[in-house]
């Protein structure tokens, strides 16, 4: 493999990791506040659909993003209602949200566009254009540094940079602000937060809402940045991979960046080399496609360090018995 190929693979790693990173940080806020969320997948799907639909109808990519965030927030609201207010099973609620998104996107897509669940392909203005960073053209001819700057770092859409900026921002909010301290405390020991006179319900709803916004961005990037429009089931398990990345990252923002980049890299390699010929035998393409899921299982099996989830995760808080 030569240097140019490596740069290409790393370049697509960054693109493919972006939706995972948004979704992973989304899950991080929710789960750090003690609300498990396996509905990331559904929220991304709903956001991808509505953002593509609105962008196709209005021709405005930003209206599309807002619509995507709206769709995701709506599902977050349902999850919050079920998990926080009605103290239901958070896993079941997440499963329901995934199916709701999977069914509704096709139903509404068919009704609005009649394309069997797809949205019309987006053209210029309807999707995100790559941004060329300053001096990219000037530095490009340089060896090594040139391609790295011009192709790997420059030339992505704005949401890619936003996703990466979200990592220090999330770390700052979680570890340096009063809200972040309370959010983490609610996930570990909600009774203590309650005793201090802070509303557990309020903090958890806020966390679930942040999760909704970030999932909305993840879905919008899928439909408006990575692809040019919405396709049926286009999230293809990314929500679950983001969840696995979250566990791998031990519920920490900076680790999340590394974990999602790893999964992005796996997907990029899988796209680049559909089947790998090892001389004696060829690894079938299906194996390469299943590799991210297999790696996820290996990681979850804890062969790479033990992860400790937030203590109050998955448990509804009961103020009084």
């Amino acid at each position: 493999m030569d240097f140019a190929t490596l740069i290409q693979i790393l370049d697509s790693t960054v693109r493919l990791a972006t939706p995972l990173l948004f979704a992973c940080l989304a899950g991080l806020f929710s789960e750090r506040a003690g609300v498990f969320d396996i509905g990331l997948e559904g929220k991304m799907l709903a956001a991808a659909f509505l953002s593509a639909a609105v962008a196709a109808l209005t021709g405005s990519v930003w209206l599309g993003v807002l619509a995507g965030i709206f769709a995701s927030l709506l599902l977050s609201g349902i999850h919050g209602l079920a998990a926080i207010t009605f103290r239901g099973n958070q896993l079941i609620s997440g499963v329901a949200i995934n199916f709701l998104a999977s069914g509704l996107t096709v139903l509404l897509g068919q009704k609005w566009f009649g394309l069997g669940g797809r949205t019309p392909s987006l053209t210029d203005g309807g999707r995100f254009e790559p941004i060329t960073l300053p001096f990219a053209d000037a530095i490009a001819p340089l060896p090594i540094i040139g391609p790295i700057y011009a192709e790997l770092i420059s030339g992505h859409s704005i949401l890619v940079y936003l996703a990466i900026a979200c990592v220090p921002a999330s770390a700052w909010v979680l570890y340096r602000t009063r809200f972040g301290l309370r959010l983490r405390a609610v996930g570990e020991n909600p009774a203590a937060v309650d005793t201090a006179g802070v509303s557990v319900t309020g903090i958890r709803y806020a966390a679930v809402a942040i999760c909704g916004v970030l999932c909305g961005l993840a879905g919008a990037y899928l439909a408006l940045g990575l692809a040019a429009g919405f396709g049926k089931e286009m999230t293809a398990g990314r929500g679950f991979i983001a969840l696995a990345a979250l566990i791998f990252a031990k519920w920490r923002p900076w680790y999340a960046l590394g974990a999602t980049m790893l999964f992005g890299f796996l997907e990029a390699v899988g796209n680049r080399f559909p089947s790998i010929d090892l001389g004696l035998f060829a690894i079938p393409s299906q194996f390469v496609q299943a590799l991210p899921y297999i790696i996820t299982v290996v990681i979850l099996a804890g062969f790479i360090g033990k992860a400790r989830p937030p203590r109050a995760g998955g448990e509804p808080y009961v103020k009084e018995r």
Binding site: G88, N89, Q90, A96, F99, L100
Partner: peptide
């Protein structure tokens, strides 16, 4: 999805 939501989670 609605059956799971209402009979399960809610």
């Amino acid at each position: 999805a609605l059956v799971i939501l209402f009979t399960g989670a809610m």
